[in-house]
Design a protein around this nucleic acid. Structure first.
Lengths: 248, 248
DNA sequence: GAGTGGTCTAGACCACGGC
DNA sequence: CCGTGGTCTAGACCACTCT
């Protein structure tokens, strides 16, 4: 028989689908264009809807597609570069930095946060939590929880607004008065908590890049930031030489 | 009837499952311990296996679980911090840097790579591709493709081994002779190509953090690195954030 | 109300690892 | 060989958005 080479390791259907659809996106579709719905696509490729969805999920993970319930599946624009470099040593909230303060409160801090702030978990020292949203081209790309021990901003009076954006700005303003000795940063994959998902216009559990930043002042950790970036639409950039190239 | 509050927005089953299992991991299991198999777990929670798997997939994405076909599901150790800071301006391959050269060749470069290297796609100028694996605690955490235009390392003779680890080391050695003016870096989410997945001991399509680095010398891009890091086991650190822990 | 993607079910078979 | 996770099917219903 003239059968072709046996597939010693046959490729899964969804993997093949992903390749085929991915190539079609490059050639037959333009950014923003809407794809046929999942039932049609599945029928067209002769697979079950669940299998087709596996392929679409991967393409969405890679930022090639955007899916919205009740609307449809569209071709995603290229990911936007979001600068998260640590080379400029600045406190959060400095001289407008594309973040919009949303709220502020004095929550109980998770044990993991307390540990990173070098706080005694049992002591229950008060910690401000500033909540901010980062916008790029008018779209929300990140939600942040910034933990600031009250001891870092002692001059802050409780007389001002106890919560809300005004309070958030007050905390950030006080932070600028400290000397920033340094910062360090880590990036890892996570899934969006319900609260963050809402602000990012995603469903809970959506893949996100979690950026953890410690701000050091006077030999201690003066603030801790937990940034949640949309993994589908963002590319985090650390550019200490990004502009060398523009000359071309 | 004494029914409890209606769920105005009922929580999906898999989301609830994820929470329940996640808490169980903290209290009833220790690192490396093996969980009951998926069929048992699904029966125990009274859900279909597909629903249970959705919960496990999320926990794996968050680095809490590790699943291996033919073996089972185990509790994952905390993610390892992998330093990818750009503060030390060094070429890849300098004074051993936890990377192991694997191979080298002169492949056709993808159009996207050619563009980042400022090469004329039509010209077909030769480009070395060095392939390296990064090990941490003996485990592979990243696979890299380092593209070096032949024009960046003109002294490299073709007389040496034309491919293989020896050739890779020769290319890296030549790179050290150039002055490194700067570098920039970007991180985004991707899924593992079949080739990388194999080296990382994962299935194709596994979530990975793609780190793109440009190395500048003499006003041009002298090399381009595409690093593929296991997203389940790695936390990328910038600065001395090595001891930052997940705060989920 | 119509149409979309999101969730869920109850099965089946396959690929892989260890025994 | 058996048990594991990985793939796949053919349905069903739900939540959401737009008209």
């Amino acid at each position: 028989m003239g059968t072709t080479q046996l597939d010693s390791v046959p490729e899964p259907k969804y993997w093949h689908l992903k390749t085929v659809i991915g190539e079609a996106l490059d050639t037959d579709f333009s950014v923003g264009e809407i794809l046929p719905n999942e039932r049609d696509l599945a029928a067209r490729f002769g697979v079950a809807r669940a299998t087709l969805r596996q392929a679409l999920e991967q393409l969405e993970l890679e930022g090639r597609l955007q899916r919205r319930r009740g609307v449809g599946t569209t071709v995603a624009p290229p990911r936007v570069g979001v600068d998260v470099s640590t080379t400029r040593h600045r406190w959060p909230g400095a001289a407008d930095d594309s973040w919009r303060p949303v709220d502020c409160g004095l929550p109980e801090v998770p044990a993991a946060v307390a540990r990173l702030l070098d706080l005694d978990p049992a002591a229950g020292a008060p910690v401000h939590m500033v909540r901010r949203i980062r916008l790029t081209h008018g779209q929300p790309v990140a939600a942040e929880q910034l933990y600031v021990p009250a001891s870092s901003v002692p001059a802050l009076t409780a007389i001002d607004a106890p919560s809300g954006p005004t309070r958030a700005r007050a905390v950030l303003r006080e932070l600028q008065r400290l000397t920033l000795d340094g910062q360090d940063r880590a990036v890892e994959l996570g899934s969006a908590r319900a609260e963050d998902a809402k602000e990012l216009d995603r469903l809970p559990g959506a893949p996100v890049l979690v950026v953890t930043t410690r701000y050091f002042s006077a030999g201690r950790t003066a603030a801790l930031s937990l940034g949640t970036y949309r993994a589908d639409t963002c590319r985090l950039t650390f550019g200490d030489a990004g502009d060398l190239q523009i000359a071309s």
